[in-house]
Design a protein around this nucleic acid. Sequence first.
DNA 1: GTCTATACTGAGATAGAC
DNA 2: GTCTATCTCAGTATAGAC
Lengths: 193, 193
Amino acid sequence: MNDAPTRQRIVEAADQLFYRQGFEHTSFAHIAEVVQISRGNFYYHFKTKDQLLNAVIHARIANTQIMLDQWEVEGEGPTERIRSFIKILLMNQANIQHYGCPVGTLCSELAKLNHGSTEQANTLFTLFRTWLHRQFTLIGRHDDADELAMHLLARSQGVATLANAFHDPKFIQTEVNHMLDWLQTYSQSSTPS
Amino acid sequence: MNDAPTRQRIVEAADQLFYRQGFEHTSFAHIAEVVQISRGNFYYHFKTKDQLLNAVIHARIANTQIMLDQWEVEGEGPTERIRSFIKILLMNQANIQHYGCPVGTLCSELAKLNHGSTEQANTLFTLFRTWLHRQFTLIGRHDDADELAMHLLARSQGVATLANAFHDPKFIQTEVNHMLDWLQTYSQSSTPS
DNA sequence: GTCTATACTGAGATAGAC
DNA sequence: GTCTATCTCAGTATAGAC
């Protein structure tokens, strides 16, 4: 099924289970079952559950960076790139309806647990924030690039949360359209005053 | 400290702890400690943790309904009432930065736990949704009242999630202002085509 | 209605053989 | 690097005295 080194397979399985069931609710036993190893073997690779969480967060950070770099290369311009961001709501529609946003739900859970890795998880948000910031700056919104970045981030977060509660694909589509329209009003002013 | 019947004190303490620490992370021992009763006594009032959760959700539904009714009475018109909704982000600013939105975080957690009370918790969202729906209808937006309600709900959810991650009061204020501006564009068209 | 005592379970974590 | 066996502890839940 998967020939990757055990450590990596553990991280991948944990990543999925943390997303689908939450960090706290996911037990070593469950992960071990998915990876098809014994619980004992587990501790050869990760001494504690928190260590595993850190590995998962770092993997997510790396994967997110790769995705953002990809958008940077593929997108013809900043507006087109921001569109890529907005459209992940559609790309991951099914998962979002089932489990919410992987970033938002993890950060919320860790914040409640008062967990030491809360800030590490929040850097996932920061990754998107600074990337969007750069795109809006390129559009010419030097003064409010961060504000626009946060605004868009907040809107997609909200859509994910409600989509998770109401399971309504039409709602996601409608909100994505609104966000694309909203973006369009800024891209037209690409040569600012 | 609190002379209310024990059952009610348990529900109130659980409500707070579920909000601050999450449902799963909160133990009977912790609640019992807050309420100053023994763990054994606990089971006289609630046979299971799920029963307690249901009591908490119903208490929240009742309290939310009271708040919405209050806004209905106090607000001079639908626009003013919707402003009350938007401004809870400022009213509860401190709590939201610490613990996120009480509705959103509970629904997200229960969805991940695949918990039987997920739908019950989601009715909290529905309460706001239908209330906002009515206000937008009164403004004259008969055709897209629900869409506008969901849109506003989503935006406040997103703001709560990011405020929880970044702890930035200025961000909340900025977004609230944007929402109030957005609302204003609709209230002016109160006599629709 | 409230208490103490206790049973039962599952989870994180360790030791040591292979 | 992987396994089995085991420890410890916290959490839910029950029984029964007061």
